Amino acid sequence: MKIALGSDHGGYKLKEVIKKYLEEKQIAYEDFGTHSTESVDYPEFGMKVAEAVTAGNYEKGIICCGTGIGISISANKVPGVRCAVVSDTFSAQMSREHNNANILSLGERVVGQGLALKIVEVWLSTEFAGGRHEKRVNKILDIEKKYRK
């Protein structure tokens, strides 16, 4: 598994904690930035990770900003992305199991580092259940197709 990582300045510190976790678990990743707490615009980094995931170069992505919301909205604009903002382990599990989320978004100002790492662990280890959920994910894809130009 290879993970695409990204954050803005508000999620930079949490992204760095997640990088250490991935290294300890020997999970490959690439950091698409930002690389400091200097103010930047989150849409740029949400898009970079989203495009890397949808291109098939990375199985999943993890993005962070202050709340996880802005960067997730940006990522979700890229067709093929199912990015979930998560702040608890149950939602992490369900976003993978039922929604086949391919990008996880976390808010550094919302979720503590310990909980964030538990969320990442659950999210990365949960498989998509398929079955009745496959039909629903396909309906999401149909919505994307309807609005693509």
Results as ranks from 00 to 15, higher is better:
Ser95Tyr: 11
Glu121Tyr: 03
Asn76Glu: 04
Ile103Asp: 08
Cys64Trp: 11
Tyr29Ala: 08
Ala28Arg: 11
Glu97Arg: 09
Gln26Ala: 13
Cys65Thr: 10
Gly11Pro: 04
Pro43Ala: 13
Glu23Asn: 08
Leu115Gly: 09
Gly114Val: 07
Ile71Phe: 15
Gly11His: 07
Ser72Val: 07
Glu108His: 14
Ile69Pro: 02
Thr67Trp: 09
Leu14Ser: 03
Ile73Met: 15
Ala52Asp: 00
His9Gly: 06
Ile63Val: 15
Gly80Gln: 13
Asn57Cys: 03
Gln93Ile: 01
Arg96Leu: 06
Glu23Pro: 04
Ile103Phe: 07
Gly112Arg: 11
Gln26Glu: 14
Asp8Ser: 06
Glu23Lys: 14
Asp88Glu: 12
Ser95Leu: 02
Lys15Met: 10
Gly68Cys: 09
Leu104Trp: 07
Val120Met: 10
Ser95Met: 00
Val122Cys: 00
Ile119Gln: 00
Ala75His: 08
Gly61Glu: 07
Glu16Lys: 05
Glu30His: 14
Met47Asn: 12
Val53Ala: 06
Ser87Lys: 04
Asp8Thr: 03
Pro79Lys: 13
Lys60Asp: 01
Asn102Ser: 08
Gly70Ser: 05
Lys48Val: 02
Lys19Trp: 08
Ser95Asp: 03
Ala50Asn: 10
Ile119Val: 07
Leu115Arg: 11
Met47Phe: 12
Glu30Leu: 13
Lys13Gly: 01
Ser36Phe: 10
Ile69Leu: 14
Ile62Phe: 15
Ile69Val: 14
Ser95Val: 00
Glu51Val: 06
Val53Cys: 10
Leu104Thr: 00
Tyr21Ile: 02
Glu51Pro: 00
Ile119Gly: 01
Thr89Val: 15
Ile73Thr: 04
Glu16Arg: 09
Val86Pro: 00
Glu30Trp: 09
Gly56Glu: 04
Ile71Pro: 01
Ser39Thr: 11
Lys25Ala: 11
Gly10Trp: 09
Ile18Cys: 00
Asp41Leu: 12
Phe45Tyr: 15
Cys64Ile: 06
Ser39Asp: 12
Met94Cys: 05
Val78Ile: 15
Asn100Glu: 07
Ile63Gly: 06
Ser105Cys: 07
Ile71Tyr: 15
Asp31Ala: 10
Lys60Met: 09
Asn99Gln: 04
Lys19Asp: 01
Tyr58Cys: 01
Gln113Thr: 08
Phe90Cys: 00
Tyr21His: 12
Tyr58Phe: 15
Ala50Arg: 03
Val49Gln: 09
Ala116Val: 03
Ser87Pro: 00
Leu117Gln: 01
Cys65Gly: 12
Val110Met: 14
Glu121Gln: 04
Ala28Asp: 15
Phe90Tyr: 14
Gly56Asp: 04
Glu16Trp: 02
Val86Ser: 06
Ser72Tyr: 14
Ala84Glu: 01
Leu117Ala: 03
Gly70Ala: 09
His98Cys: 02
Thr67His: 05
Ile62Glu: 11
Gln26Phe: 12
Asp31Met: 05
Gly61Cys: 05
Gly107Gln: 05
Tyr42Asn: 09
